[in-house]
């Protein structure tokens, strides 16, 4: 398990999402990376305590990653992350009365996985309820476990692959954790951040459309 950076890749005007994804994949393949199957990261949101008055609405996000098939990540609004066994889903079902699944909240990033030496690339198209939302590109550098040590390397790689505009955006999450040992939970937090951005964008769009 190395250090992971998840980048949001904007879709330019007049191009479909699939076209952009194909473009990135082609670029990665040209680099010499080997295709190693598919990947999927999904996120479900549960809302707490609708029945209880005078308490702020609390959310719990349950994330799964195909890279960690045995694990289930539960992240609260505050950023607290619980890494549990995959059976945790069953536990959430038991808590139905308190935590209710938000309708149509399931958002996932799916796509191809590539390996290139010490790097792993994942090009995922994000969709919520089968609506295309955007593109997330994940770059993982396997030999390193501290984000701060390989940040420049990652930046260089992402610059050459995704362009400098994309490479500039860095997750606020990673900035705070530059000198700590990187864990899979951190990857999931990055994904959640992006997923929340997508959701916000859609709600803004809807508001504008109205």
């Amino acid at each position: 398990m190395g250090v992971v950076c998840v980048y949001f890749y904007p879709v330019p005007e007049g191009k479909s999402g699939q076209q952009v994804v194909d473009g990135i994949q082609k670029q990665i393949e040209l680099l010499g990376a080997v295709k190693t199957g598919n990947f999927c990261v999904d996120c479900e949101t549960f809302q707490a305590g609708s029945g209880i008055q005078n308490t702020p609405q609390r959310q719990v996000n349950i994330l799964h990653s195909s890279e960690q098939p045995a694990s289930c990540f539960a992240i609260l609004d505050t950023g607290t992350c619980l890494v549990a066994d995959a059976l945790f889903d069953g536990l959430m079902q038991k808590l139905k009365h308190y935590y209710q699944q938000r309708k149509g909240s399931k958002i996932e990033s799916k796509g191809q996985r590539y390996e290139y030496g010490d790097f792993i690339f994942k090009v995922g198209s994000v969709s919520q309820a089968s609506n295309f939302k955007g593109i997330l590109v994940e770059i993982e550098y396997c030999p390193c476990v501290v984000a701060g040590d390989c940040m420049n390397l990652m930046k260089e790689m992402s610059q050459s692959l995704l362009g400098s505009a994309v490479a500039e955006q860095q997750s606020s999450f990673l900035k705070t954790k530059t000198d700590m040992i990187y864990t899979p939970a951190d990857t999931m937090s990055q994904y959640l951040e992006h997923f929340n951005n997508f959701k916000k964008a859609t709600s803004v769009n809807q508001a504008m459309n109205r």
Binding site: M1, E67, Q68, A70, S71, C72, A84, T183
Partner: peptide, 15 residues
């Protein structure tokens, strides 16, 4: 090890 794989976020390759 397999029991702890979930909470420790063991990757697919390790599994």
């Amino acid at each position: 090890r397999r029991r702890l794989a979930g909470p420790q976020g063991t990757s697919r390759r390790e599994l």
